[in-house]
């Protein structure tokens, strides 16, 4: 046990892990052929408070590019977003913002 106030060497993996946990997560909605475009736009407006313009642009990205990032945050926030999107039957997942 150290008896002075000299800096103590911290194991590097721990630092890396903490950094990894702080990295922002992105919430992705994937294209699916069943959910109506108007419905997807409405859900994005309702859940995230987006303007009609922004939600429509995201919905079109989902439709044309196959997916779109609709929100981001720390892991807990992102999980809550994914949960609420799942409640509304949108095909949502989350991943680290690369």
């Amino acid at each position: 046990m150290p008896t002075t106030l000299e800096p103590v060497r911290v194991e590097e993996p721990k630092v890396d892990e903490e950094l990894a946990n702080d990295r922002p997560w992105v919430v992705i909605v994937w294209n699916d052929p069943i959910n109506l475009m108007s419905y997807v736009t409405f859900v994005l407006k309702k859940l995230f408070g987006y303007s009609d313009e922004k939600a429509t642009a995201m919905m079109l990205d989902v439709h044309h590019k196959g997916k779109a990032v609709v929100a981001n945050g720390n892991r807990e926030e992102a999980e809550m977003h994914v949960f609420r999107l799942h409640e509304h039957s949108l095909w949502a997942s989350m991943e680290h913002d690369e």
Binding site: E79, V82, F83, H86, S89, W91, A92, S93, M94, E95
Partner: peptide
């Protein structure tokens, strides 16, 4: 109805 939240992390997905 209950799609995966994590596509590339089995451990986190199981937890979710």
């Amino acid at each position: 109805l209950f799609p995966p939240a994590f596509h590339d992390d089995e451990e986190k997905e199981a937890e979710y």
